[in-house]
Every structure is written in structure tokens, then in C-alpha cells.
Design a protein around this nucleic acid. Structure first.
Lengths: 340, 340
DNA sequence: GCAGGGTATTGCAACGTTGCATTCATCGAT
DNA sequence: ATCGATGAATGCAACGTTGCAATACCCTGC
């Protein structure tokens, strides 16, 4: 049974050397005689020494923690993304603390301005309810990387897919399968979040290019991006009699909800209705039928975001302008949008 | 624009008082004259003071962090659970650091014995590959709560549903819909994890009670609990010609994978095949058809686990024996298991 | 035999905070 | 007038670690 708590001091006493030498052995940086190192190592093992991170951090001025702020962990997209970020962070010897904002603008603001203490060395935030202006207005105590949100002259790096292009591709694909009455599900005018707006833009662009005038009755607002919202929007679409022959949902969850409602109403997918989602979550692959989706390269999002943080944290050259990193996406075409 | 970093010292200098007085104002514990408090408060605001948590933690011997170790964040069950735990932790002013073990026994061991430093005040772990014996053998540097795993004479508190009972209920429900050839998907003999074993036990008990002798060919092993494993197991079941009329999957993901394969093979659910899952994830509700599932009360799991930690951390009475907390579950009956 | 250069080890100080004890002033009770 | 009690503010020390500089020692080369 190891001791609950032992410090460099205790190890030093046991090994008959100074605290500093033990520290040198632990860090492995300075040169230590082989014999001494062995003796100290034995003492370390015997006492089960574990470094006190609070002390280490106090000394170093760093905590080794980075924050990840996302709207909600239970949604598949953010769950998958968070998993990749935690993994990538571990490779860089960082630990991730996760905060859920639930789309609350105050929570997002609080995290950005660092209220609540200098706990983290950097912050990755997927903003939801803050406008681009607000995101850029804050003074920052730590480097920040924004996920997904566009910010013209921001103070922070940004990593995201090209939402306009991706939405355009998805819509163009649907047009290519012969659809003409394509609904867009996922507008969120109540939020200042720009993502939905960009996807709508891509959707309309694709329609116009094909000579189809966007029909406002086919553009549907949702409260959140959950399955239930997609189900409700689909119900409304069917009841309003606008007779869509396809749905482009701004998230896979919305698409899955729409799919569910379509089935309930006896529609056959993709014969009567094609469905395309956005996010590339794993559920999409196993939906019935398998859901076509725009899949951002999430692994690369995680990687690039951490790379940005690392650069800012370890080389704090104040002059470097914020980066705007566009990660690739792929349109995964599956059964839900095959030609009817 | 606030200063990037200011300490009690700086605030004290600006307000013309001692460091200690500023500390008293910040903590609000000692008595401070109203006029002084106001002046200090103004200085605090002006400098944008944020406490240095490393220093505070070093002094207090606590970090205010708790660890959450789960196999993987991207699976819906753990994503949902993690979200609830993060939320419940915040209500107790704790911050959660998340670790993914990916079922690696070494990773689990490392977390339990505290290698890697005393970062957290407590640990919630959902063990996957460690046997009950190993889980109890470790000396612990911090309080630990186990999720899901049974451990007869453990050193740690445990929070879980009654797996045997829950599996029994699910199987009994299937029998009640007239099924007789009920497959069990999710055995994991390669892991020492007891969960699958308990669910198998409940499954067999229910069969025998109904006078059905368990058929080994209907009991299927999986590598992990992902959708793909469920899909593969279903494929094997169909190809082996054992002709099941129902599937009880030990996780919802397995069930969704099985559902997917069943559809591909032209089986109609629930007419030709009934499917029941386990975990109560949100996808289950929106599957086609909606998936019957055994839903543990996840919110209560999160609450009780944190309550255990709080008790151990704040009242470290060494004598209190480990608790074994059974949280309720509900069998959510949906279309996937309606009578054929 | 001594300068010069390396290796091995050490002590001191500091990171920013808070517990404890102390100081000083004020006020009411004796 | 004196004492004790109370309120307000402060100084000191310590939490455990590591950067820096200093020390002591040994070896090589002239």
C-alpha cells in the first residue's frame, strides 16, 4: 500500500540527497550520476511519489489544461468532436476540461473573458449564441480558438469548414437526383450564430444556379438542432402542404428527426423524399435508410485547433494575425438521397 | 481593455491596503470596513483581477477538479452521461476533466492509482476492461466512484442499475410479445467486465422461467459495443441459419446496428424480428422503427455519483464502508418490439 | 602543478494564495 | 481611569515545485 501523499522532500530524505536532486531525477533534465539516479528512483517508487500539479503549475505559470466549451456534450456531433479533441490534447500532454454552454450567451461570454479564474492555458470554443461582433470584442486572458463561427476581423483563430460551399454541394447533389422542391431545415434567426446563415446562403445559391427560385415556405426555422426539432419541422412541412421532394437539414440530428417523421407519415425515403444532413455523425451511417451527410473532417478540426493553441501558447508572438483555417469536408452519399 | 494578469499584490497597491485585506474582500470571510471594501472592490474591477487557481489549490490542497474516466466520449451513452455529470458537477462548483480509456486496461489502472499527478480531488470511472479484483486491489490517492461495475468487497463506491433484473425484464417483455427464439447480442468474454455477464444472466433467467432452454447459438459475442459490431453480429445470426425472432442487444448501439442489418436483409421490424436495446440513448427514440430500450436513469447516476464523491471528499471519515447504489431503470417499450 | 572545462550536487528564492497570530484603535462596562 | 471585548487591518509563514547561480569535485592538457 503506497502512501497517500509524499513530496520531493520525503523522497529526498529517504534517498539521502537534496530536494533539488530528486527534482532533477524526476524531470530528467539535469545530469545526475547513475548511482544516485538509481537510489533516488528506488525511493520514488517506494514512496509512490506523484508530482503536485498545483505547485508545478504555480511555478510554471501554466496549468497544462485547456478548456473546451461546446453547447452540449450529449449531441452526437459535439460528443464525437470532443472525443477527438481530448485524444489530440493528450498527445500534446494537455488535459481537457469541458464546459457546456447550452447556448447561453452569458455562459459563452463568461468563458471568453476568463471570469472564474485562470484555470486553463487556452480555450477552444464552439460559439452558439454570440454574434461575431461580440466574439471579437472581448479582451482575452488566454489564446482562443473558435470552432465553426466566422468572424471577419477577429482576435482569435478560427477553424471550420466552408459552410457556404458545403451547403451548395449538398443542395446541388439533391438537384442532381432530380429533386426540385428542396426544403431547408435549420434556420435560426433568433441566434446571431452565422453558421445557419451560411448554409442557407449555399443552399439558395445552388438552387438559383439550377434555375430554381428559392421558396420561403420551404425554408424552415428551428429552435435547437435536436432530432425533435427536425421531426417538428418535417411535420409542419407536410401539414402546410408545400410538398417537398427533398430535405436538406443543417444538422444530422435534424435530418434524423425529419426521417423519423417522414416514415411515420408513410413516405418512402428516398423514393418520395430524399434527405441530406450535415455533420457526418456515426448515427447517420446506421440510420434506415443510411443518411447522406456533409461530413466535416472532425479529426482535422481537432488537430488544427490544438495546433493553433499550441502556437499561441508556446510562441506568444503578439503580432501574428488570427488564422482562418478551412478544413475539408466530404459529401457522403448514401441511400437516403439516391435518385427516386 | 483589462490587464492580462494581475495579482492580489497589484490590487493592494492600487487600493492602498495590504494584500491580506484584498484577500479578505475577495473571500468575503473576514470583516472589512464598508469604505475599505468599496475601495478595494473598485481596484479589483479596474484591474480585472482573477484569482490564480494554481496558487489557491496549492494552499488549499484541493484542485476543485474531478476526473471522469469513460471508455469513449463519442458513443452516445457516454456522451449523454458525461453531459449530465459535467452539469451536476458545475452545480457543486466542480470542474470536470475527461479522460478516455478506450477500454485500455493500462489506462484504467493508471487513472486509478493516480499516476500522472494529483490533478483531481476525486474520480468517477466507468471501468471496462479491468476485473472486479483489479478494481479493488489498487490503493487510492483520491476517492473513487465506479459506474456500472459490480465489485463485491470494493474500496470504492459504486453506482449502477440492477443489470440482472433489467435484462430479465427486457427478455420477459420479448417473450410476452410471443417471441421464442430470442438472440442475446453483446457478450464480451475477452473482457473481465462484469456488466455483459450480468445481462446474460438476466436473459437466461427470464428464458428459463418461461420454459425456454437458452440456445448457445443465439448468444453472440462482440468485440466492442458499437453499431458496426451489432451489424456484424446480426449478419452472422442470419447467415448461421439460427433464425431468431427477436434480438436483445446489450447496448442501444448494438441494437441500432442490428436493426440496420435486419432492414438490409429485408426483415420487417417488429413483424419478423423484434429488437430491444439497452442504455436509453436519444437515438433510440428516433430510430426507424423507434427502438425499445432499457433506460437507466442517467440523471440519477450522475447525481448519486457526485454525491458519493462530495461525501468522501468533504467528510473523509475513513471508516465509512463503500456504498453500492442501485439506480432505477425503465423499460421504454416502442415500436421495435411490438407484438408481431 | 595549475589553469580550464566539464560533471554532479546543492541552496536560495520565488510563483500567488490563505491560515494563524498579531497589532492597533475604538468603545462600553466596571 | 482602566480593563476587556470587539472590529479592522496587517505581517509572517507555508503549500511543493523549479529556475538560477553557486559550489565542490574530478579530469585533461600544457
Amino acid at each position: 500500500m503506497t502512501t497517500v501523499s509524499s513530496r520531493l522532500k520525503d523522497v529526498a530524505a529517504l534517498a539521502g540527497v537534496s530536494i533539488r536532486t530528486v527534482s532533477n531525477v524526476v524531470s530528467g533534465s539535469a545530469s545526475v550520476a547513475e548511482e544516485t539516479r538509481a537510489r533516488v528512483q528506488r525511493a520514488l517508487d517506494e514512496l509512490g511519489y506523484r508530482p503536485n500539479l498545483a505547485a508545478r503549475n504555480l511555478r510554471a505559470g501554466r496549468t497544462g489544461l485547456i478548456g473546451l466549451a461546446i453547447p452540449e456534450l450529449h449531441s452526437p456531433y459535439f460528443g464525437e468532436l470532443a472525443g477527438l479533441i481530448v485524444e489530440a490534447a493528450r498527445q500534446r500532454s494537455w488535459t481537457v476540461v469541458i464546459d457546456q454552454t447550452f447556448g447561453d450567451p452569458d455562459a459563452e461570454r463568461r468563458l471568453l473573458d476568463g471570469t472564474g479564474g485562470r484555470l486553463v492555458d487556452g480555450l477552444i470554443i464552439s460559439p452558439w449564441s454570440l454574434s461575431p461582433e461580440e466574439l471579437t470584442a472581448q479582451a482575452r486572458s488566454v489564446p482562443v480558438v473558435l470552432l465553426g463561427e466566422r468572424h471577419p476581423h477577429g482576435l482569435a483563430d478560427r477553424v471550420a469548414v466552408d459552410n457556404v460551399l458545403a451547403a451548395d454541394e449538398a443542395t446541388t447533389h439533391l438537384i442532381g437526383t432530380g429533386r426540385r422542391r428542396i426544403a431547408a431545415v435549420g434556420l435560426q434567426p433568433h441566434l446571431r450564430n452565422g453558421t445557419a446563415h451560411q448554409r442557407l446562403e449555399g443552399y439558395r445559391t445552388a438552387l438559383r444556379r439550377a434555375g430554381i427560385e428559392p421558396d420561403p415556405r420551404l425554408e424552415r426555422t428551428v429552435t435547437t438542432l435536436h432530432r425533435s426539432d427536425g421531426a417538428e419541422a418535417m411535420t409542419a412541412l407536410l401539414e402546410d402542404g408545400v410538398r417537398p421532394d427533398a430535405v436538406f437539414a443543417f444538422s444530422d440530428e435534424l435530418a434524423l428527426g425529419a426521417l423519423h417523421t417522414a416514415h411515420r407519415h408513410g413516405l418512402r425515403v428516398p423514393r418520395d423524399l430524399a434527405v441530406v444532413g450535415f455533420d457526418g455523425i456515426e448515427d447517420a451511417l446506421y440510420a434506415n435508410p443510411a443518411l447522406t451527410t456533409v461530413a466535416p473532417d472532425k479529426r482535422q478540426i481537432a488537430e488544427r485547433a490544438l495546433q493553433c493553441l499550441a502556437d499561441r501558447i508556446y510562441s506568444p508572438a503578439a503580432g501574428v494575425p488570427p488564422l482562418d483555417i478551412v478544413v475539408p469536408h466530404r459529401l457522403e452519399i448514401r441511400a437516403s438521397s439516391h435518385a427516386s
